[in-house]
């Protein structure tokens, strides 16, 4: 562990001085595209080291989302109360955008249920709910999920019956991975979220 981290920092120091390292050196060869060389903004979530796997079974890091605005929510597949509503709300936020902008943002859903929502289970979930192909469904280690939740301010807890209690939060990320808006709760706030997303789309990466 220590050795690997040391390598990370040496490589990072060489490549990215003085910014914090974006990627683990050990992973850098295996993922495309490589993150752009420009340093990330200080508040970018894409500095996180969390590791995820897509429902297609591919490794995934949040930094791969850099470049397009993101609508991000955490969920679990067997949720029968809030998560289906949240998915519907994300679709409605998208519909509130001008037609030409609707495909500019990516939708990312990350599961709390690291035991049951395996990549294969997420694949089934995508098919059963007929979710659009460009939505990113992610499974991660318990460690990674907790780190992402902490970054987003999402509280979650597994309950006695295996269900999860969790915050209902939809987060809009800028092209650089900064939180630009959060919609809390299950009612209202769609117009504000859409406005924030439209603003995020309207900004070209790296050109304020």
């Amino acid at each position: 562990m220590k050795t690997r981290l040391l390598v990370v920092h040496l490589v990072a120091a060489a490549l990215l001085l003085p910014a914090a390292p974006l990627l683990r050196a050990a992973d850098a060869c295996c993922h495309a595209p490589l993150a752009p060389a420009a340093p990330l903004p200080a508040a970018s979530l894409y500095q996180a080291e969390a590791d995820f796997t897509t429902d297609a079974g591919a490794g995934f890091r949040l930094a791969e989302l850099r470049g397009r605005p993101v609508v991000l929510a955490m969920f679990f597949a067997s949720c029968t109360y809030a998560c289906p509503t949240t998915i519907g709300d994300i679709l409605r936020i998208r519909e509130k955008l001008p037609a030409g902008l609707r495909d500019e943002a990516r939708v990312v859903m990350v599961t709390f249920d690291v035991e049951r929502d395996t990549p294969a289970a997420l694949r089934d979930f995508r098919e059963s709910r007929a979710l659009p192909e460009d939505w990113v469904l992610l499974h991660g280690s318990a460690d990674s999920v907790r780190e992402l939740a902490a970054l987003l301010g999402v509280k979650f807890k597994r309950e006695a019956d295996g269900q999860f209690a969790h915050s209902n939060l939809v987060t809009i990320l800028s092209r650089e991975g900064e939180i630009v808006h959060q919609r809390a709760g299950l009612s209202g706030g769609l117009a504000e979220a859409a406005a924030a997303l439209e603003s995020a789309i309207g900004v070209e990466a790296g050109k304020p």
Binding site: C79, Y81, A82, C83, K155, K157, E159, Q163, F164, A165, H166, S167, N168, A184, G185, L186, S187
Partner: peptide
């Protein structure tokens, strides 16, 4: 009394 709007479950 948990706020079902803000928190799912529980």
């Amino acid at each position: 009394a948990r706020d079902q709007n803000l928190f799912c479950g529980g």
